[in-house]
Design a protein around this nucleic acid. Sequence first.
DNA 1: ATGAAAGCGCTAACAA
DNA 2: TTGTTAGCGCTTTCAT
Lengths: 368, 368
Amino acid sequence: MATMQDVARLARVSVSTVSYVLTGTRPISQATRDKVLAAMAELDYQPNAMARGLASRRSRILGLLLPMDERGLGATETAFVTGAAAAAGAAGYHLVLSPIGVGDLDELRRLASQRMLDGALLMEVQLHDLRVDVLREVGVPLVLIGRTADTTGLSYVDIDFEQTVQEAVGHLVNLGHRRIVYVNHSADTLAEGYGPALRTRDAFTTAMTGHGLEPLMIPAEDSAAGGRAALDTALRQAPDLTAILAMNENAVFGLLGELANRGRSVPDDVSVVSMVTSPQVAELATPALTAMSSPGSAVGRIAIETLLRHLDGGRGEIQQQLLPCALEVRGSSAPPRTADESDTGAGGDQPAPGNEAARRRAATRRRA
Amino acid sequence: MATMQDVARLARVSVSTVSYVLTGTRPISQATRDKVLAAMAELDYQPNAMARGLASRRSRILGLLLPMDERGLGATETAFVTGAAAAAGAAGYHLVLSPIGVGDLDELRRLASQRMLDGALLMEVQLHDLRVDVLREVGVPLVLIGRTADTTGLSYVDIDFEQTVQEAVGHLVNLGHRRIVYVNHSADTLAEGYGPALRTRDAFTTAMTGHGLEPLMIPAEDSAAGGRAALDTALRQAPDLTAILAMNENAVFGLLGELANRGRSVPDDVSVVSMVTSPQVAELATPALTAMSSPGSAVGRIAIETLLRHLDGGRGEIQQQLLPCALEVRGSSAPPRTADESDTGAGGDQPAPGNEAARRRAATRRRA
DNA sequence: ATGAAAGCGCTAACAA
DNA sequence: TTGTTAGCGCTTTCAT
């Protein structure tokens, strides 16, 4: 393993020159730079990360703090991760994912106070997220993917739930639906103040009221069973419902199953729109789900870019951004059977023609 | 940020003594140790990871190399990760996940030759995985989760696909099924030599032949559409099929959807058993899927323990382990409708009574 | 535009 | 059982 000494010797320059070639922190003549670069190439030199970190007091490592529960990472979250990893790599940083949730504060404190992290991205942010406190305490810059309750002084990137709900409701209303039920996360989750659940609830009320319609929300446990129960409740409270908007990616499958059980066809009897859902998941259902698809890797990329700005400038400006979800119409939404006074606006939303989109996307997966 | 100097000064000992207290590499009297520990506590001392790494030439960082495609991490893979993270933490190591697939060899080479990793775990291992070569080249110890084609000199932990298939087939045969179709990964995937697909194919042939039955395998693209197509093929080739064994977690949903479309009820007309599937995913389906559930976090834990042994001893012995999947009977499997000569063995497999298991597991999920 | 040299905070000989 | 000290490989003043 060649060291900087070796490179300097071979190039007949001092170590500091080699260092400056590497870091670019001071002008080097083209001739010298070439010599050094040639020596590096010849020796296959790679700087020692630990030595750099010790001397410069920067590890060039960014942490992505990512709680992993038993349920796995959805395609949406995975896109965040890959986007962040790509952006970090492009900037010469390593992105390490640490499966650290709010339960592992000690592990986080260790990681952070050992000066192992130049900065951190937090995923699965809670309204009162103690990880934020720990990181601030030890002075590690951070950016949230999501939002805490109080975001003063915090940079974040999050999904624009208001826009997402509004567009989803708009789609259904355009199709002619009037009786739309919103299946949210569980009552417990709401009570805990889970941000997305609260924001979408309020946005749903606003959107429906704006259309002169009555907002009806049903909480559902995050499971297929929860979805089945939610459908039962929904049909009891709104027997005339023609459309369901679902925030709960797990429940939506139970919901679809129960609809089938009861002989209600999708989308002829009931339209279903799933929110913040990846194309992959949307197409597991039969028919494939019309969904608001999440902004994906852009979230991760923007978060990293924001974080880097916080490091470089010293005091980067606080940045708070909301990214929209895009409506992707598939087979699960259509005009209600009772096509009454449905003034389907010109250029309004069309139900997907067959399953072409699904077929097109049916790519092969290769792993081993 | 207190340094070791500060601790030594406060405890009135030398820095080396503090260091030895920390590393335990030489005996320290109880009195001294207590003094040092007290000083550490008082100063809230945390060793500087970079300095340790530089001086000791060990980063105490283990890498978990984990390709992330657009599909996300399944619950099964997530369990591997959390198991590994827990085991690494318990041993005083950091586990960093790097979303590095066979496409990012340069990034891997950088990570490895910068001496940032003491060792690595590889997930999503391909039969000819170039990451293995890169790591060996730079001398980073590694353990596979999965298997390459040639495993000589390599330690690995993998799922016992032979046992899994055998048990799944046994379950169906016990229920009285005779005409069982195996829905595998895609033809492309098989052609590429994807290990699990090949191993399960062969195991299926062995198992069926062992029962005096004819093995029929259908490849399916990894998507709902692929599952629908596979069912079509299956019914064409074996109109009298009463059971389906599925390796393809994505296809199985399309398969179920298409069964419903054709008015074939599960499990009355057709039993479905899903392989290497987490409980969470199994219960998204309606009815919940009988499945061979993967060993979960044990895989990750054992892999880390093996890796640590490779570091400590210098030359740890090669270890190759296969872990079994466990049969979990849910609602998707039952005796065939045409209960003919079905000699359901005493104590044989029973279909799940209702959905109690599902309901019990319907825990709340809290995130933000 | 380049070089010399003093650390960065810790580990691990080498001494005692 | 404990202390002294020479690095680990790099960055970054301070000189020139």
